[in-house]
Every structure is written in C-alpha cells, then in structure tokens.
C-alpha cells in the first residue's frame, strides 16, 4: 500500500510534509514518492483538503455477473463500438467543421459508454480472473503481424491477479 495525492484537490497546506516520517511527500513532482512511502497514513489524517488517499495492494474479487445480464450489456456495447466507428467515418470524411465537431463528440461519447458498459459486463478490475482469461484467450488466437503479443504476455506476467 502507498499514499497518493490528488493534485486537483491539493491546496498546498503542506501538513503532509510536516508529519511524514520518511519525507516521501516532499518531491518536486507534486506526487508522493511511492517507493519511500511506508503507508503509515499520517499524511491522510493530517491533510485539511482531503487530497490524499491510500492505494491498496490487493482488491476484493469483483462482483460476479450473470451470463444473461452480460449478454444484454454486450449487445449494447457492440452497438456503441459500432457507432464510434460510424462517427469516425463521418468525422474523417467531412469538410464541414461543425459536422466534424459533432462527429468527434459522438466518437468520444460512444467510446466512453462502450467502456463503461464493458466494465460492468465483467471487466471492472484489471486484476480479475476474467481479465486473465481474456488475455490468455487473445494469446491463443491467430492475429495479424501487428498484434502486440508481447504486451499481452507482459501483462500476464506483471498483473497480480486476485482470482
């Protein structure tokens, strides 16, 4: 575990500097030095702007989803992903700056919805068993040459899966 500072909330009250026993919060980047942090929580308790939180090492197992619920969510996320592709074609194929702008908004909006829906359909936690299974399945499939196989292998080796 280590403490992390939300730079949007930090108002430089600097109480963390005063209470930190290891000097981990005294950095030039504004972020806490995670390597020096001993997770004592003193900075969190002292911070008047509530800008520091503890990043856990381990997360609880993600909620299980029924196959039928995932089926419904997947129908929608497939359409949102498809809408993103359509909006990209509109964006890239027009000379009208307003249509280009609206299409860009639709690209972003559909991507965000697809992400959020996929997240609720079993891919919430990067450390979940589902994600490991997905990465393993991807490795087992045939892919064109530009497939980032190494990235998948690295993730399987690096992630601390909790299921």
């Amino acid at each position: 575990m280590f403490a992390s500072r939300n730079l949007r909330l930090c108002t430089k009250d600097c109480m963390c500097l005063y209470v930190c026993p290891t000097g981990a919060s005294d950095t030039e980047t504004g972020q806490i030095d995670f390597a020096k942090c001993i997770a004592c929580g003193a900075c969190i308790k002292s911070c008047p702007s509530g800008a520091i939180s503890m990043v856990p090492d381990e997360y609880p197992v993600q909620q299980r989803k029924t196959k039928s619920m995932c089926g419904t969510l997947n129908l929608i996320s497939a359409n949102k992903a498809q809408s993103e592709v359509i909006a990209k074609r509109i964006r890239d194929g027009t000379d009208d700056p307003v249509l280009e702008q609206l299409a860009s908004a639709l690209v972003r909006s559909n991507r965000l919805m697809a992400e959020d829906i996929c997240r609720e359909a079993g891919y919430m936690l990067p450390q979940s068993g589902n994600v490991r299974q997905l990465l393993e399945d991807l490795l087992a499939m045939e892919h064109p040459d530009d497939f980032p196989r190494e990235a998948v292998e690295k993730l399987l080796a690096m992630m601390r899966f909790n299921e």
């Binding site: 196959k67 996320s77 992903a81 997240r119 891919y123």
Partner: peptide, 14 residues
C-alpha cells in the same frame, strides 16, 4: 447471446 464473441471495437473499449 451470452457467449457471443466480442467485436474488435468491444475489445478496444475493454
């Protein structure tokens, strides 16, 4: 339906 394969777009979003 539940086992439907994920599209490239969905894999990208995941």
């Amino acid at each position: 339906e539940g086992l439907r394969e994920l599209s490239a777009g969905q894999l990208s979003a995941i």
